Simulated scan of single mutants.
Amino acid sequence: MKLIWLYFIRAYISAGLFFYFRRIKIYNVEHVEKSKPVLLLSNHQNALLDALIIAVKSGRFSYFLTRAGVFNKPFVAKILKSFQMLPVYRIRDGWGKLSNNEAIFETCSKLLNNGACIVIFPEGNHSLKRMVRPLSKGFTRIVFETLESFPNADLQLVPVGLNYAKAACFPDSASIYFGKPIAAKPYHLEDRNGAIVKLKSKIQFEIGQLTTDIAKNNYDSTMEALERLEVDFLNPKAVNACVESKFQDCTPQKVVNSGLLKQVFLALLKCVYVLPFLIWRFLVKPKIIEIEFISTFRFAVVITLAPLWLLCVLTILLLTLGWQVAVAYVMLSLCIALIAVKL
């Protein structure tokens, strides 16, 4: 029953992402081994959307370590746990709760020993800035405790790079790069502190190759130059090469000019889904404090209120004008949504 639920959720979210993103490019997903325990270690830019894209595009049903604050309400906690999300406590949750992580890390080790896939965002927080922030050592603890408890576990570490064209905008495009798997055993040294430093450095470097990684000390000026050059942020290798060459080796992205037509269909989209749009525009969006959550909440509106609105309109049309008109309206609504997003 659990597997059926997970298949349903993945299919539903996949459909939602298809209607939300202009495109999502996937690279080297074959690096995610199907028969071995895997830790997917990803950069973290776009709040919950990062986890959803990995969940849908990695080819495995993964477990996710998630900040404990979102589990505060019992009903929400039950839903999140059905999605295979595990709470992780941080200092801001209170010193007394940090001990709860012992059980979570033990659970992770057992899951990995059984061949599971676990997703961790080792930066520890999210930010729209195009850089890989210093990694916390929490993931290394899971790695080494797993190897100590289960020495025969062939644990694989797969770095992941998530990239967005304009993360807070709609519609947006994304790319996800899966790096080559790294065997964890060679990093299991007697010198635990040295092993932690070595492993963190390796993973940070690998993630930095899979996403745009701009140095902190000249971030703003570098971003201004890259935006002026109109580089393709979905191609991090090219963008990083552009920065390393001091903006001499830069290729602008190919842009298809469909501005007026796109604006027309976006306007039609708002008219067709008028109630979900008004709820988003005037009730949900004004309450969002962190810009990193804009896309997450917008997507939540898309996959919840938009289908409900369409179902309500379908029911009204069925009862008043017949099934032919109702079906035609639904098909037209979906076509408008697709054209508005994909143009």
Rank of each mutant, 00 (worst) to 15 (best):
M1H: 12
K2I: 04
I4C: 10
L6V: 09
Y7H: 14
Y12T: 07
A15S: 14
F21K: 12
R23V: 02
Y27L: 06
V29P: 02
K34F: 04
S35K: 15
L40F: 07
L41G: 03
L48T: 13
L48V: 14
I53T: 11
V56T: 15
F71K: 09
F71P: 06
N72Q: 13
P74I: 07
I79E: 08
K81G: 09
S82I: 03
Q84A: 06
Q84N: 15
V88K: 05
V88L: 09
Y89G: 04
Y89Q: 04
G94T: 08
G96H: 08
K97P: 00
K97Y: 11
A103Q: 13
A103S: 13
F105C: 04
N113W: 03
N113P: 02
A116G: 07
I118T: 07
H126W: 04
S127C: 05
K129V: 02
M131F: 00
S136E: 14
F139S: 04
V143I: 15
A153F: 03
P159R: 11
Y164I: 08
D172E: 09
A183K: 15
A183E: 13
A184T: 03
H188R: 09
H188F: 13
E190D: 12
D191F: 00
N193L: 05
A195H: 02
I196F: 09
V197T: 13
K198I: 00
L199I: 05
S201A: 14
T212F: 07
T212P: 07
S221G: 01
T222F: 08
E224F: 05
V231A: 13
N235I: 03
A241T: 13
D249E: 15
D249Y: 06
C250Q: 10
P252A: 09
V256E: 11
V256D: 06
L266R: 05
L269R: 00
K270F: 01
V272E: 01
F282E: 07
K287N: 10
E292H: 06
S295I: 03
F297M: 14
F297L: 15
A300F: 14
I303C: 12
T304Y: 08
L308K: 04
L314Q: 11
T315G: 02
I316N: 03
L317Q: 12
Q324M: 10
Q324T: 11
A328Q: 05
A328P: 01
S333K: 02
I336E: 01
I336A: 02
I336W: 00
A340C: 01
